[in-house]
C-alpha cells in the first residue's frame, strides 16, 4: 500500500472524503486484506484514545489560581503615566521670558555704557534676568518689573 492510499484510508475513517470517494474507499477496504487490517488498527488506536479521556483537575485552589490571573489583569490595565507635554503657548512663553530679560539687560548695559549725565534724576537696574528696576529720584518713585509667572 502506498502513502497516498494510506492517507486516503485514514481520511475515509475520519469522515474527510466526499461521498463518492468514500464509497470507493469503503469498497476497497472490504476487499483488501491489508487495508482491512490497517483500518482496524487505526480504529483501535482512536478508540483507545477516546476511552482514556478522564476529567483532569487543576492542581491549584480556585483562590490561588484566580489571584495570579487577577494580578496580571490589574497590571496590564495600569496605564503608564505619560509626562504632560507643554502647550505651544507655554513653550513660547518659556522662550520669550529669558529673551525679554536678555533684551532688558542689553538695553541697560547700553545706557550705562553711554554714561548718564551728571545729576541724572533717574536710574535703571537689572537685578536678574527676571526683574527690572526703575528709580525716579525726582519723584521718589521706584518701579520693579518682575516676569510672572515665575519661570520654572
Amino acid at each position: 500500500m502506498n502513502e497516498e492510499q494510506q492517507l486516503k484510508l485514514q481520511a475515509f475513517l475520519d469522515g474527510e472524503l466526499p461521498e463518492d470517494e468514500a464509497r470507493e474507499i469503503s469498497a476497497w477496504i472490504a476487499q483488501d486484506e491489508e487495508a482491512t487490517a490497517l483500518s482496524k488498527e487505526l480504529r483501535n488506536t482512536r478508540q483507545a484514545l477516546k476511552n482514556s479521556v478522564s476529567p483532569v483537575r487543576l492542581p491549584e485552589s480556585r483562590e490561588f489560581y484566580w489571584s495570579k490571573i487577577q494580578r496580571e489583569i490589574e497590571r496590564s490595565e495600569r496605564v503608564p503615566v505619560r509626562a504632560v507635554q507643554p502647550s505651544l503657548f507655554e513653550r513660547l512663553r518659556r522662550m520669550l521670558i529669558p529673551a525679554a530679560g536678555f533684551a532688558l539687560v542689553a538695553a541697560a548695559g547700553v545706557m550705562m555704557f553711554r554714561g548718564m549725565p551728571n545729576g541724572a534724576d533717574s536710574e535703571m537696574a537689572v537685578a536678574d534676568s527676571g526683574a527690572f528696576t526703575y528709580r525716579d529720584y525726582a519723584n521718589g518713585t521706584t518701579l520693579v518689573w518682575v516676569s510672572y509667572p515665575a519661570e520654572r
Binding site: 487490517a37 482496524k40 488498527e41 483501535n44 476511552n51 482514556s52
Partner: peptide
C-alpha cells in the same frame, strides 16, 4: 507491520490512561 490485536482491549480505564 499493522498491529492487528488491540493492545488496550482488556485494560482498565486507569491503566489505559
Amino acid at each position: 507491520p499493522v498491529i492487528t490485536v488491540n493492545p488496550t482491549e482488556r485494560l482498565e480505564r486507569g491503566e489505559l490512561r
